[in-house]
């Protein structure tokens, strides 16, 4: 009867059976709300983001917040040790989380974290990549598509310029980075499905 919400932003992956699903969700919500607010603050700091209509800002954040968080919290996934560190500071093995029914999503998250970590981005490169991730989010519901596309183009140019100026001998890094964008979209869909499944049938 224990309820499982094995997201590393949760304080603990397993809640006691005595707690109602609503209580478990509310507790989890309190854990992820500060992280979501930080993504919004990050978005506001992206040059040009606040010039978009408020509607389009919300649309990009709705589809991009998890993707930004996935990049930001990649370091919680240790591909070498096959562990995930939760907000309570405790590390859980992939095997134990798999046993809780989190198999394929976690496998995909480990795969993503490993690929991104392998690229060895500097903090400012990572921040610019997160900006590209956010502005490259699903366009459904966007009204001023041209403005979003222009902002995306500017950010991609800035990221390419930063990376190629630092690593003039490595022409593969930038395209490898862009290849992570579809991975993130797939992860986003999978993650949403998992959370919705909990909301419907914990």
């Amino acid at each position: 009867g224990a309820k499982v919400l094995a997201c590393p932003l949760n304080s603990c992956p397993v809640a006691p059976a005595s707690r109602s699903s609503q209580e478990v969700w509310e507790s989890f919500s309190q854990c992820f709300t500060p992280a979501v607010k930080e993504v919004v603050e990050f978005a506001k700091s992206i040059p040009g983001f606040q010039s978009l209509s408020q509607h389009d800002q919300v649309m990009l954040l709705k589809s991009g917040t998890f993707q930004v968080l996935m990049v930001r919290f990649c370091s919680l996934f240790d591909p070498k040790e096959r562990t995930v560190t939760f907000l309570n500071g405790q590390s859980y093995s992939l095997a134990s989380l798999r046993a809780l029914g989190m198999g394929s999503l976690l496998d995909a998250m480990f795969d993503f974290s490993e690929k991104l970590g392998y690229l060895g981005l500097e903090p400012d490169e990572m921040a610019l990549f997160m900006a590209v991730v956010l502005v490259s989010a699903d366009r459904s519901g966007i009204v001023e598509v041209g403005a979003v596309e222009q902002l995306q183009e500017n950010l991609i140019k800035a990221l390419r310029s930063l990376i190629t100026s630092r690593r003039p001998d490595d022409s593969t890094l930038f395209p490898k980075l862009l290849l992570r964008l579809p991975d993130l979209r797939t992860l986003n869909n999978h993650h949403s499905d998992k959370l919705l499944a909990f909301r419907i049938d914990p």
Binding site: S29, V36, Q54, V58, K62, L195, I200
Partner: peptide
């Protein structure tokens, strides 16, 4: 459940966080 962000409460958090500093703009 065609809009997961709304159903998970994400949209509400995002709107409130944005409204902290944003003035309402005409759509």
């Amino acid at each position: 459940f065609s809009d997961p962000a709304s159903n998970l409460g994400l949209e509400d958090i995002i709107r409130k966080a944005l409204m902290g500093n944003l003035e309402e703009k005409p759509e």
